[in-house]
Design a protein around this nucleic acid. Structure first.
Length: 481
RNA sequence: GGCCCGUUCGUCUAUCGGUUAGGACACCAGGUUUUCAACCUGGUAAGAGGGGUUCGACUCCCCUACGGGCUGCCA
C-alpha cells in the first residue's frame, strides 16, 4: 500500500508544479490542528518549489469576522508560514460559484429543487421511522421543467445513484464509497449563495490547487467533491487527508484542554522553530529524526511519511524540542523573538540597557532554558539593576559567615584578571582558605550577584556583569545587616 | 442507525512477511556538577482481542471491541 501511495504522489508531482493551500474559516482563533494542516501544506509546497496559497472560507456570513481573519494571519506569520500572493476571500468569489452552479444545471449535472426545509425534514423523519436511509431524495430530480413552480429553489447536484465513487488518497489509500450513501448535495442555496461543498471545488480548481492536504474530517466530502470535478470536467487534485490532533487525554481537542489556539503558544513562550519542529513530527516521520531545522523538514517532508492515526499533544516533548531550538538559535534572532514574546504575553518591553545586557548574557542563558519565561527568569541578574534585593531563598544563604567570606573576595577581585580561569582561581583560593569547596561559596556568591538561587554559572555572571558591577553587588550583599 | 477512517512502550513514532520489535520525550536508578538547565551510564515499558492466509505475521484478509469522523440550504 505504501508503494501505491508513493506512486500516486510522484505521478502528480511530475505532471504539474505543486500548488497547495490552507483554507481556514474565520470563525475563531487559529486552532493548533489547523496550524499543523497549514504547516504540512507549506512544507509540501516549499519543499518542491511550489506555491502555498491561503484562502479564507468566509461564506458563513453569520460567524465570519475580520478579527478572526486577522488572528489567523498573525498566527501563521508567527509560525513562519509565508503564503504566496494575497489571501483569497471565498465570499468574494460567490458570483463565480453561482455561475458554475448554473453551468452544472446547463450540463444536466444539477437540477432545481423546490422542496422546502419542512418537506425535507418530514422526509427524513418518515425515513427514520421506517428504518430507511435518511439521505434526502428530491422529487424534483427528474421533474419536467414545465412543472417547475415559480418559487425559491436550490440547485442540487445530480449525483449518480448507483456504482461507487473511489478516492485515491495519498494518506488513507484507496477509499470507496457506495453512491447510494451520497445524496444530491445542495450547491447553490435558495438565496443564491454557494455552499461550501461547491465553493471549495471551484476555488481549488480556479487557484490551480494540485494537492489538497486537509483534516480527515473531510474524507467523506472528498467523494462528493470528486463528483463536482467530474461534472465540470476538471482534473481531480491529489487528496491527502491527515488525522486530527487530539488532546493529551486522547479526546478531541477542545477548550478544556487549555491551549488550543496557536497564539496561546506564542504567549506561553515557545519559540516558533520548536513549535514547527514539534508539529511537523506530530503525525509525520522521517525515520528516527526528531530534531531538525525547517530547511531539513522542507527537504524531507513527504505525504508518504504521514501516519494514519490521530496523535496526542505532548507538552513535555514540545518543551524539550523548544529548548533545543533556543539553544541552537542565533543570539540576535533569539532576542527579537523574545521581544515579540514579551509583547504577546503582555509584559513590559525591554529597555535599551536590558537589550544590551541580554545580548551579552545570551550565550550562557540560551542553553539552559526550554521556553522564554524560563530564559527571562534566569536573565534576572542582568535585567535587574542594583540593589538586587535577594528573595527569601537567596537571603538564607547570605548569612553573616558567608557575607564575611564575600567581603574577603572583593579586594582580590579588584586585581584579578577578568577572564574565566582567573576568576575561578581567585574564588577557589578564598574558598580553600576556609577549608570550603566551591559549592559552599557559590551559593552566597550567586545570591549576591543574582539575588536568586537559580541563575547561570557564577563565573558567567561575573564575566557578563564586569568587574565594577560584580564588586558593587558583593559590597551590597556584604553590607546587608 | 448507515457509511468511512483508525488501533506498536505512558506519549510521538520506526518497521513495507523473517529484527533480541529500534529511536525520541517522559519516568526510574547511578554518575558528573557552583544552583537551574545540560551531560554520561544503565533500566522499566508496546504490536487491542479472536480467527484465518503463509514455512514464517506488528506487517496481508475477516470478525469483534474500542476511539474518531461524516451523515445540513455549517465550513
Amino acid at each position: 500500500m505504501v508503494s501505491e501511495r508513493l506512486m500516486l504522489m510522484s505521478e502528480a508531482a511530475s505532471t504539474r508544479p505543486v500548488v497547495t493551500r490552507f483554507a481556514p474559516s474565520p470563525t475563531g482563533y487559529l486552532h493548533i490542528g489547523g496550524a499543523r494542516t497549514a504547516l504540512f501544506n507549506w512544507l509540501y509546497a516549499r519543499g518542491r518549489g511550489g506555491k502555498f496559497l491561503l484562502r479564507i472560507e468566509d461564506t458563513d456570513r453569520e460567524r465570519s469576522t475580520p478579527e478572526a481573519t486577522a488572528a489567523i494571519l498573525r498566527g501563521l506569520t508567527w509560525l513562519g508560514l509565508d503564503w504566496d500572493g494575497e489571501a483569497v476571500s471565498q465570499f468574494e468569489q460567490r458570483h463565480r460559484h453561482a455561475d458554475v452552479a448554473r453551468e452544472m444545471l446547463a450540463r444536466s449535472a444539477a437540477y432545481k429543487c423546490f422542496s422546502t426545509q419542512e418537506e425535507i425534514e418530514a422526509f427524513r423523519e418518515a425515513a427514520r421511522a421506517e428504518g430507511r436511509s435518511t439521505l434526502f431524495q428530491s422529487p424534483w430530480r427528474d421533474a419536467d421543467p414545465a412543472t417547475h413552480p415559480d418559487g425559491p429553489y436550490v440547485i442540487r447536484m445530480k449525483a449518480p445513484r448507483e456504482g461507487e465513487t473511489v478516492i485515491e488518497d495519498a494518506v488513507q489509500g484507496t477509499v470507496k464509497f457506495g453512491n447510494d450513501q451520497l445524496d444530491d448535495m445542495v450547491c447553490l442555496r435558495s438565496d443564491g449563495t454557494p455552499t461550501y461543498m461547491l465553493a471549495v471545488v471551484v476555488d481549488d480548481h480556479d487557484m490551480g490547487v494540485t494537492h489538497v492536504i486537509r483534516g480527515d474530517d473531510h474524507l467523506n466530502n472528498a467523494a462528493r467533491q470528486t463528483m463536482v470535478y467530474r461534472a465540470m470536467g476538471w482534473e481531480v487534485p491529489v487528496w491527502a487527508h491527515i488525522p486530527l490532533i487530539h488532546g493529551p487525554d486522547g479526546k478531541k481537542l477542545s477548550k478544556r484542554h487549555g491551549a488550543v489556539g496557536l497564539e496561546e503558544y506564542q504567549a506561553m513562550g515557545y519559540p516558533a522553530a520548536g513549535m514547527r519542529n514539534y508539529l511537523t513530527r506530530l503525525g509525520w516521520s522521517h525515520g528516527d529524526d526528531e530534531f531538525f531545522t525547517s530547511e531539513q523538514a522542507k527537504n524531507w517532508f513527504d505525504l508518504s511519511g504521514i501516519g494514519r492515526a490521530p496523535a496526542r499533544l505532548d507538552f513535555k516533548k514540545l518543551e524539550n524540542l523548544s529548548g533545543q531550538h533556543i539553544a541552537a538559535a542565533d543570539d540576535a534572532a533569539l532576542l527579537h523573538e523574545i521581544q515579540a514574546y514579551l509583547a504577546a504575553a503582555a509584559q513590559p518591553a525591554l529597555t535599551e540597557a536590558q537589550v544590551h545586557g541580554l545580548l551579552r548574557a545570551m550565550y550562557c542563558l540560551k542553553d539552559r532554558a526550554k521556553i522564554f519565561p524560563e530564559l527571562i527568569d534566569k536573565a534576572y541578574f542582568i535585567l535587574k539593576q542594583r540593589p538586587m534585593e535577594p528573595d527569601a531563598q537567596a537571603t538564607k544563604s547570605l548569612d553573616p559567615v558567608s557575607r564575611g567570606i564575600l567581603s574577603e573576595l572583593t579586594p582580590r577581585l579588584q586585581s584579578a584578571s577578568w577572564e574565566r580561569d582567573g576568576l575561578e582561581a581567585v574564588v577557589a583560593e578564598v574558598a580553600g582558605a576556609h577549608g570550603l569547596g566551591l559549592g559552599k561559596i557559590a551559593g552566597p556568591l550567586r545570591a549576591a550577584l543574582a539575588g536568586r538561587t537559580v541563575s547561570p554559572s557564577v563565573f558567567d555572571m561575573m564575566l557578563v556583569l564586569g568587574r565594577d558591577e560584580t564588586i558593587a553587588r558583593l559590597d551590597d550583599a556584604a553590607g546587608q545587616p
